[in-house]
Every structure is written in structure tokens, then in C-alpha cells.
């Protein structure tokens, strides 16, 4: 029977202490352990590679040895359950946030959250950004009831740390240096065309976008944003929606019958 052997094989793959499953032969009996080690090594190396590919900046910040040790523990606790390796590690940011040795780098988990969001945006559905000229067809009376359909790739990663600045420095997008203005940042992650765009949102924008993506009307979203941020300037944020390619369609409706 293959099933019990396969079970032993699978269990021994993640456990180097476990004996090589019975029934396994090499051409020389004494070599079975070394031969089985090839499979153990292939599995762990391929999973470490998958995490390193998705969490490149996280690895850079943590350092190779620390990252690898942390990733090994994550793999043992959360082995992949799907063959789609590009999405492996959805639970990695939360794992990092509870991984005691990583506490010295308090922003590491949020960097991982940003990188996880980046992969999701990279593979998200395509949708063409709407030309801002479309706004001209909206009458002033309808403006408060305007709903924005936002790009399917949109994600916002909010952090108590300057994650966008740190991430951009490690990606080589801005010079690496000390961050004098150390405060929380909201990251906008969106892929209007083929490249993922990651940028720092201005104050108030995260709440505004959040409301819009929940299906709230322009008036409701703006009201909510203004309540939280005294300087909220709707014109600037409206322009930002279009310049970042976030809007894919417009519709006019009262919130209760918001089209899907």
C-alpha cells in the first residue's frame, strides 16, 4: 500500500529528526538517509526561496540569517496549502508581529504587510483607469451622490511607522539615510496598468478611500474624511484619485441602492 508510506514520507520531510521512512531504498542501504535528505532540502529551500522572493525588503532589513531562521519557523507552523507559490506567506506578516526575536525591528511586520499587498496587487484583475474628463458629465446636483468604482488591485496598508519611506529606501527608489521625521504612514498600493505603484497617502486620504471603496458616496466619504482631518481638501484628493489611476467607473445613486 502506498498511502501509509506516503504519510511517513510527508511527515519526515519537515522533520529532520525523524527516521527515513521504511520501504525507502537507495542503491546502497547506508545511503538512504543522504538520498532522502535531497527531498528534505528541496522542499525547505524551495519554500524559503518563495518567501524570500515575495518578502525581499523584509529580508534585506532582517538580514539573510535572521530572515532564514524566522522563515524556517514560519514554514514549520504554516506550510503551504496551495500550489500557488506566489501567494505563499499570507500569514507571514502576522507571524512576524508575534515573533519575539523580531520585536527589535518593530516595523518589520508592516514592511511584510506592504510586500504581501504588493504581490496581491501585481496579480489582481485588470481594469482600465477612467479618464478624469468623465467627471465633466456629472451635473452639480448629482455630485454628492457620485460613487467611485475603485481599481480591483487597490490596497491600503496603514502603519504606525514610516513604512513607505523605509520600503522605498530599501528598493533604491530614494537614497538610504536616517529618517528625521519619524511618524506613521499610510501606503497606497495599486496597479492601474502593469506596474504596481506604492506611494505614501496624504493625511485623510486613507479614510476617504476606505469609505469610497465601501460604497459610500462622494459626499459621505468627504464628510467622514473632513471630520477626522481638519485640513481635508476635497479638490486635491479628487485629483489624486484620478492621477493615481484609482477610478475605473462612476455611477450615481443614493448609498442604499449602491450598484455592485
Amino acid at each position: 500500500m502506498f498511502a501509509p508510506v506516503q504519510n511517513d514520507f510527508a511527515e519526515a520531510l519537515f522533520d529532520p529528526e525523524r527516521a527515513v521512512p521504511e520501504d525507502i531504498l537507495a542503491c546502497h542501504a547506508e545511503a538512504a538517509g543522504k538520498r532522502f535528505a535531497v527531498y528534505r532540502n528541496n522542499v525547505i529551500v524551495s519554500l524559503l526561496d518563495a518567501l524570500a522572493a515575495r518578502f525581499k525588503v523584509t529580508q534585506q532589513i532582517a538580514g539573510d540569517a535572521f530572515f532564514k531562521a524566522m522563515a524556517r519557523m514560519f514554514i514549520a507552523a504554516h506550510p503551504p496549502t496551495s500550489p500557488l507559490m506566489m501567494f505563499y506567506g499570507e500569514a507571514f506578516p502576522d507571524f512576524i508581529s508575534t515573533f519575539a526575536p523580531a520585536a527589535e525591528i518593530p516595523y518589520l511586520a508592516d514592511i511584510a504587510r506592504l510586500e504581501a499587498a504588493r504581490t496581491r496587487a501585481y496579480h489582481a484583475a485588470d481594469a482600465a483607469p477612467l479618464d478624469p474628463a468623465a467627471l465633466q458629465s456629472v451635473t452639480p446636483d448629482d455630485l454628492p451622490y457620485l460613487h467611485f468604482h475603485l481599481h480591483p488591485s487597490l490596497e491600503i496598508v496603514s502603519s504606525a511607522y514610516p513604512v513607505v519611506t523605509i520600503w522605498a529606501m530599501h528598493e533604491g527608489l530614494i537614497p538610504l539615510g536616517p529618517i528625521t521625521d519619524w511618524h506613521g504612514e499610510d501606503a497606497l498600493v495599486v496597479r492601474p496598468h502593469l506596474d504596481v505603484d506604492i506611494r505614501r497617502l496624504p493625511p485623510g486620504a486613507a479614510a476617504f478611500l476606505q469609505r469610497l471603496s465601501e460604497g459610500k458616496s462622494l459626499a459621505e466619504a468627504a464628510e467622514c474624511a473632513a471630520a477626522n482631518h481638519q485640513d481635508f481638501d476635497l479638490a486635491i484628493h479628487l485629483a489624486g484619485l484620478f492621477s493615481t489611476g484609482l477610478v475605473t467607473a462612476l455611477s450615481i445613486a443614493a448609498s442604499e441602492d449602491m450598484p455592485k
Binding site: 502506498f2 508510506v5 506516503q6 504519510n7 514520507f9 510527508a10 520531510l13 520501504d23 527531498y39 528541496n42 522542499v43 524551495s46 519554500l47 518563495a50 506550510p79 503551504p80 496549502t81 496551495s82 500550489p83 507559490m85
Partner: peptide, 14 residues
């Protein structure tokens, strides 16, 4: 795959 885990390797069978 085995037991809901994907091993990301091509493993042998008898």
C-alpha cells in the same frame, strides 16, 4: 500534496 500541505517538490511514488 499530502494532508492538505503542498510541498512544492516533485516527490516519488512506488
Amino acid at each position: 500534496s499530502h494532508g492538505g500541505v503542498f510541498f512544492n517538490d516533485l516527490l516519488p511514488l512506488p
